[in-house]
Nucleic acid binder design. Structure first.
Length: 216
DNA sequence: TTCAAGATTTCCT
DNA sequence: GGAAATCTTGAAA
């Protein structure tokens, strides 16, 4: 399990390093887990696409301002939940949206938790709201400390996957002016469990957190 | 006080 | 391809 300093960093770096990590959930004695395969970084008060843009602090997004390594789960469109991992030190409101996961444990229960039920495995958690549905995540787990909770936690895989990570623009933020062009979405090249056609730009080795748009 | 839009998904045409 | 579902938030009136 990653330690607190892992999360206390730039959201872009955390977003990249969360790929391949396992997200575990215990519910009513059952054990569910997915391998994280798609993330997006949301960069604090300057990011027009972030809930924290302009220094906004509301009852909904309060967890973003809290200590790193906690869950920020929000309700949207009147019917969906989305899971984020809070990054940067307390008081710096940035987070990583977990957009998709590959089911690795409790697949049958996940299928039951999904409303559609009969989805093939690669569609059980291929989207931020689908992932929350498959893992039974809702506002009751908002603010959960992922380093200490029994119901929701992260684990490093026994063997780190040798993926080629690609980046691209974030999804569903057309309103965010220039920020919609920034390359803050990350996924393994060609991975079948991502939410939509995957990002296709290579990360530059010389600048591992380069988003193609210059420094934050 | 009212309204429009959203870090989405699903169903219908 | 388009619309519905329907809570939260910020902006307009």
């Amino acid at each position: 399990m990653p330690e607190r300093p892992f999360f206390e960093r730039d959201a872009r770096q955390v977003a990249i390093e969360l790929l391949g990590m396992e997200l575990h959930r215990r519910i009513n004695g059952a054990h569910l887990a997915v391998r994280i395969v798609e993330t997006e970084a949301y960069l604090g008060v300057a990011d027009r696409a972030a809930h924290s843009f302009g220094g906004r602090c509301t009852p909904r997004n309060r967890a973003m301002w809290g200590p790193p390594g906690h869950a920020y789960i929000y309700f949207t469109y009147g019917m969906h939940h989305c899971l984020n991992v809070v990054t940067e030190p307390e008081g710096v409101p940035s987070a990583v949206l977990i957009r998709a996961g590959e089911p690795i444990e409790g697949i049958e229960l996940m299928a039951r938790l999904r409303k559609r039920g009969a989805d093939p495995a690669h569609e059980l958690a291929s989207g931020p709201a689908k992932l929350c549905q498959a893992l039974a995540l809702d506002l009751g787990l908002n603010g959960t400390d992922l380093l200490t909770a029994d119901e929701l936690w992260l684990e490093r895989p026994r063997q780190a996957p040798r993926w080629t990570i690609r980046c691209g623009p974030r999804v569903g933020i057309d309103y965010a002016a220039d920020w919609k062009r920034r390359l803050l979405r990350f996924a393994p090249a060609g991975h079948p469990h991502v939410s939509r056609p995957p990002p296709d730009r290579p990360l530059r080795r010389s600048r591992p957190v380069d988003d193609g748009f210059g420094p934050a």
